[in-house]
Design a protein around this nucleic acid. Structure first.
Ligand SMILES: [Zn+2]
Ligand SMILES: [Zn+2]
Ligand SMILES: [Zn+2]
Ligand SMILES: [Zn+2]
Lengths: 168, 168
DNA sequence: TCCTGGGTGTAATGTTGTAACAGCACGATA
DNA sequence: TATCGTGCTGTTACAACATTACACCCAGGA
């Protein structure tokens, strides 16, 4: 059930990915997290995650509320509640530069420094963990005694696909 | 006129800074930019910039609208217009993680990769340019053919002052 | 003088995110 | 079984952030 329509996209940790996400894999991660927390993986959460995984691109909460329209009509607040859980579970990230949310099938380590690369043309997001960036941040912080906690790195640019297709 | 109440804070390029900004210096940079663009450096723009420089901390557009209350009462849209100019002029940055704006007295080079370090306790922002981070980003992008344009790096944490004062 | 480009003032609206509260489902407990 | 607590749901209302539209003004140039 709820199999990804285009099931390429099984990519390993520390890699980057393009559009679609393996919906089953990410859902099973969410289920594990729910289990570990003793809370249910509800249909609400499942629908939102499935939509994000299938889309493979960032969507605003209101956009999600519209598109999850399988019968019921969701209010934004319900979407935000689902997103809160999914972000805790590590299945969904928020893009601050766009106030949008997208599914992630990576397994991020605890202190890992992740870079979000957002295509200005097509909106697709690629992730990459960079130890070099992490060291650079630590270095920048050290010069002023700043104690870094949560880095947020978002790079706007063009993905390989869109850069290769100047006029689309 | 409009001299900074605490005029320490003349810091060179590539350094980091704490709270207050040299209002005169940053204003003269804004004036130069306006001149080069053939547009006026209006009192509106001057007031917003002066407020941000004096405060030295990020403020939301609505907060700015309230506090610029020297006689006239500003609407948010007017503040946004001033902020748009000031950001183009390179005198003000936007903090996406907080939807807030702050004055900057650095002279950022064209391709410079700047890190914003935001104190979770006191809200102060320090900036640092890091070539190491820039290299890390280029490396992360190269593995997927992504062409980076505008990096946005915001690190939440604790500034030296607040870290040294656990209970305040 | 007329035209034009940019800034200003104002109203309206759009977008994003939370607070508050009343129900319901379900498992634990007595 | 009855009761209780915990967490999800549905709904309303609202707060916070940001933009669009339009009329007006004003300075500089044809
Ligand atoms: Zn991720
Ligand atoms: Zn693209
Ligand atoms: Zn700066
Ligand atoms: Zn601090």
């Amino acid at each position: 059930m709820h199999r990804n329509p285009d099931p390429r996209g099984t990519c390993a940790h520390e890699e980057t990915h393009g559009h679609p996400i393996d919906g089953d894999a990410v859902e099973s991660r969410a289920r594990s997290y729910a289990l570990s927390k003793g809370v249910p993986f509800t249909p609400m959460r499942q629908s939102v995650l499935a939509l994000l995984a299938a889309s493979g691109k960032p969507m605003s909460a209101y956009e999600i509320a519209e598109k999850v329209s399988d019968t019921r009509k969701l209010k934004a607040v319900q979407v935000y509640r689902a997103l809160e859980f999914l972000q805790e579970a590590g299945c969904v990230h928020r893009l601050a530069s766009r106030s949008a949310y997208f599914a992630c099938d990576h397994l991020h380590g605890e202190g890992e420094t992740v870079v979000f690369m957002v295509c200005a043309q097509c909106g697709a997001v690629q992730e990459a963990a960079s130890e070099l960036v992490a060291r650079g941040l630590r270095g920048a912080a050290k010069t002023t005694g700043f104690r870094p906690r949560h880095p947020m790195i978002e790079v706007e640019g063009e993905c390989a696909e869109c850069a290769g297709t100047p006029e689309r």
